[in-house]
Design a protein around this nucleic acid. Structure first.
Lengths: 261, 261
DNA sequence: CATCTACGTCCAATATATCGTACATGTGAT
DNA sequence: ATCACATGTACGATATATTGGACGTAGATG
């Protein structure tokens, strides 16, 4: 995950960082794992992982589940996440907006944000004829693989973008190399036009539409997307973009705004 | 919070524990705070808190919000919490059950769980005539203050219960002292009857009904509650308990059950 | 039976995280 | 002007957390 972090090698990792590395790893895997497996797969010393896992267990951050000593994210995290959601109260409006988008277009609608230096689908509403979407809700995906990615980093300078995105994330799922300069050009284009659309990089049969949901600072705090069969997308391009833009405008008066205080 | 932890005094606190103490504290306060305020209010060294807050900020666990350098729970926690919720997929059923309960009774219905060694309302549906409920969603409350509390610890032995509940939590909000032996007796009664009801300890005008939602291990993983005006509650006691029990039975086939694997 | 891997625990060495303290700044009260 | 307080930063000492490696077990494989 954070291979970048091990700069100089030979250094000890801080417990806190390792702990959150473990949590993030479990989130990615979306299943309970044994401490031993975790250690092996994130490349951390076994003894450290056992120590940390036990600490996290006793705090309710992790829980035993799935038997055989496997652990997964714990209830405490749910409570903390709920407090965040309650504070930045975007869920209700978001859900309604996706609903409406799906109604208007019959296509799959998504609400997406950055998760650190990667991209993630926060909420999704499947369209009328659901097909296998390549990226599930909650999975982190390299920013350059997605249409939304072009919008979510548009507030950064070229140099900041290159520092922000892990270099290996420019390697596309098919194995091809996306030239960072090409990506940057697309970012700037998306910024000018206030939207980005392309034939999905991740699969070979969908077209993706993304528009920004701007936060208080004026830059894209999130995106709204449609994922459509290529024919449909190209045929309905203008109407779909209209729907997206209206929806995004509607959301911009709600998200990331503290409820009180 | 964990005054108990500082057993021998003079010891250093572990970073991980302090970190989660900070997170829990922010959750309780439900607002952004300056690192300095956090340090003062949880009684931790300022330098440690600054160090930890910066670490958590750089991990996305905390976020700047509210200006003046104030911090609050961050987006990463939301993602982790969503992963938990997704794994133990109880939300949908839970929401529907509360809806139905509120419809049938016109009273306030709650879904409650333990949060470590305290009690918390996870979800709530307000009744027909909403009144000021004393405990908000997400707040942690001493176990002995609540009807649900009697059920949530019923799987523990008497001794385990006394070790589990912080002693100071037997001091009721009015200042009176609830004798632990009295509490234990009520726990055993609740266990036998599979329910607990009483006039709220927290306020002077509501009656509370609680029934267990049993998990796979057979003990109360959560509770369903009704909070009613005292007259209503006493008048409709049997009907309300019927509704609650049916609802709980309905939930028991869903909660805390991993979706897959 | 011998060997290998997966799993968990224990332990000592040392790199370092925690914490007390001092310093710097701004603000408001006296 | 002087004091008190809140806020953030810097730094060294030392208690300790992280880590590699040893150890024990169990199951699978040859």
């Amino acid at each position: 995950m954070d291979a970048v972090r091990d700069e100089a090698a030979g250094k000890r990792a801080r417990g806190l960082d390792r702990a959150f590395e473990i949590l993030d790893f479990l989130r990615q895997k979306r299943q309970a794992l044994k401490p031993n497996e975790i250690a092996a797969q994130i490349g951390a010393p076994r003894s450290s992982v056992y120590e940390l896992v036990n600490l996290l267990l006793s705090n309710g951050i992790l829980e035993f589940t799935g038997g055989e000593g496997r652990v997964y994210l714990g209830r405490k995290l749910y409570f903390l996440g709920a407090a965040y959601e309650n504070h930045f109260d975007f869920t209700r409006e978001c859900e309604a907006t996706l609903e409406q988008l799906a109604d208007e277009t019959r296509e799959t609608a998504q609400f997406c944000m950055l998760d650190g230096n990667r991209y993630t689908v926060v909420r999704m509403r499947e369209g009328a004829r659901p097909f296998r979407i390549s990226t599930d809700v909650g999975q982190s995906v390299p920013i350059p693989w997605t249409a939304s990615g072009r919008l979510l980093v548009a507030h950064l300078s070229n140099e900041e973008i290159l520092n922000f995105i892990p270099p290996q994330d420019f390697r596309l799922p098919g194995g091809e190399w996306l030239e960072p300069q090409t990506f940057i050009a697309e970012v700037r284009q998306a910024e000018r036009e206030g939207l980005f659309t392309f034939n999905s990089i991740v699969d070979s049969f969908t077209h993706c539409f993304a528009v920004p949901v701007r936060g208080e600072e004026g830059h894209a705090a999130a995106t709204l997307c449609l994922v459509t069969p290529r024919d449909d997308g190209i045929a309905n391009r203008d109407r779909y973009l209209d729907c997206l833009k209206k929806a995004a405008t509607g959301l911009e008066h709600a998200p990331s705004r503290p409820k009180r205080g």
